[in-house]
Amino acid sequence: MSMWEYANPRRFMGWTRPVLPWSFALAGLCLTVGLIWGFFFTPDDFRQGSTVKIIYLHVPAALMAINAWIMMLVASLIWVIRRHHVSALAARAAAPVGVVFTLIALFTGGIWGQPMWGTYWAWDPRLTSFLILFLFYLGYIALWEAIEDPDTAADLTSVLCMVGSVFAILSRYAVLFWNQGLHQGASLSLDKEENISDVFWFPLLVCIAGFVLLFIALVLMRTRTEIRARRIRALQARARRA
């Protein structure tokens, strides 16, 4: 059996039903453990004091804000190429989750920025990029909402997502060109020298796992809702014609 058969709406509803509570439970567990560990059982940073602990919300949220868009892009491509309805609906379901993660990243960044840089907001390349990402999300969601026919909406938003991705990357480089900025380097990188120390690193990993699981759980739940809405629509259409 091909893996694509799991993307049939009926099968999708079937296999996600048992998966959903588990993903929520695991997400809750990881977040509880990670946040308590991070907030109460790690030392203060020698330079940043206890403010550094917001990293356990800020970094995972920022990471998932970008990953949610990438997931939407992949789902859009799958819809355009293979026309699996679940794929289009999953992209639609992920967008509001992505927006919320973007907002969390922006707000926690502001709260962190105030004691560090003395300002809640600066037109720093990273901050600005997230603001632009936020605008891309808004446009994407607005287009979904504006179009009546669900398949047309799926097609158009897919094209927007692809074109938007290219322009999002362009914007990222344009913004770097425009202002060098205050933001510290990436908290996570494969280059060990630049990385934060292990004491902060392990609870952070747990928090990231928690955010990933939370994202998966929320997207599954929202996709199930979208599928149900489409099913109601389909049944109503049949009832009207019969």
Binding site: I132, L135, F136, L138, G139, A142, L143, A146, I147, T152, L156, V159, L160, V163, G164, F167, L170, S171, Y173, A174, V175, F177, W178
Partner: peptide
């Protein structure tokens, strides 16, 4: 993108303005 939408003008701005960022910069 917005040609089929009645009163799509505002939506058009919302979609196009973020795409204008690199050119503007």
């Amino acid at each position: 993108l917005t040609v089929g939408i009645r009163r799509g003008g505002l939506l058009l701005s919302l979609l196009v303005l973020p795409l204008y960022v690199p050119t503007l910069i």
